[in-house]
């Protein structure tokens, strides 16, 4: 199997930062902008910064939606970051209702905070509560419960597949801050911007994937 990691470039990404972090973790990583090329890689990352609707639409038009779904079916590991993570869910409600990849049952909605002193976007380092299951332990191996990760987002995910959630974060209420189930991993936080702990999560992914 290829030891290379594909960073999917669909025009909505913090691609460079992700590549640099993977390189720093001593992984070989390349950007991939053609869906048909994806199957040649040992693992894939779906990054993303931007708005759910246009990003979902672009995945569909480019053919990356089917390519990503088939990739997951093949058993190879996929990690979604921020908007990439949000796209894993069934639906997103950012400027209208949009269909996601439906890899995880759940919805992505705008923060509706009762405490008006809480700012939107949710920006900065927040602590996460890690789940007690085998995949969560793999994802957060070597990282203590209650560590902080870097977030920047105005929409949050909630999932009905509670067993697939690997951590939750509290910002005016708990939301799903990461998922890990079999070969589908992802986080609302940016592991590539979360210092040593973030790099540890990426390293755990690389080790599990390759």
């Amino acid at each position: 199997m290829s030891k290379k990691i594909a960073v999917i470039d669909y025009g909505f990404g913090n691609i460079e930062s992700v590549l640099k972090a993977l390189n720093f973790c001593k992984a070989q990583a390349e950007t991939v902008n053609k869906p048909e090329a994806l199957s040649g890689y040992g693992a894939a990352i779906l990054p993303g910064v931007g708005s759910f609707g246009p990003a979902a639409e672009f995945l569909k038009i480019s053919g990356f939606d089917e390519a990503v779904k088939n990739y997951v079916k093949s058993g190879k590991m996929l990690y979604g970051i921020c908007l990439g993570f949000q796209l894993f869910f069934t639906k997103g409600f950012e400027n209208g209702e949009h269909e996601g990849l439906d890899l995880i049952k759940g919805e992505v909605k705008k923060f509706d905070l009762k405490d008006k002193s809480l700012k939107i976007p949710h920006m900065g380092w927040n602590t996460v509560k890690t789940a007690e299951n085998i995949y969560a332990r793999k994802m957060f191996k070597g990282i203590e419960d209650g560590e902080s990760f870097y977030f920047v987002h105005s929409y949050y995910a909630l999932t009905q597949d509670v067993s697939k959630s690997s951590s939750v974060c509290d910002y005016g209420g708990d939301f799903c801050s990461s998922i890990a189930f079999e070969n589908v991993w992802g986080s609302q936080f940016h592991p590539e911007k979360s210092g040593d702990k973030g790099l540890a999560v990426l390293t755990n992914f690389i080790k599990e994937a390759l």
């Binding site: 460079e16 640099k20 390189n23 720093f24 870097y150 911007k193 979360s194 210092g195 040593d196 973030g198």
Partner: peptide, 8 residues
């Protein structure tokens, strides 16, 4: 910097 420092 961004090749070596992984905070915002």
């Amino acid at each position: 910097t961004s090749e070596q420092v992984f905070i915002p």
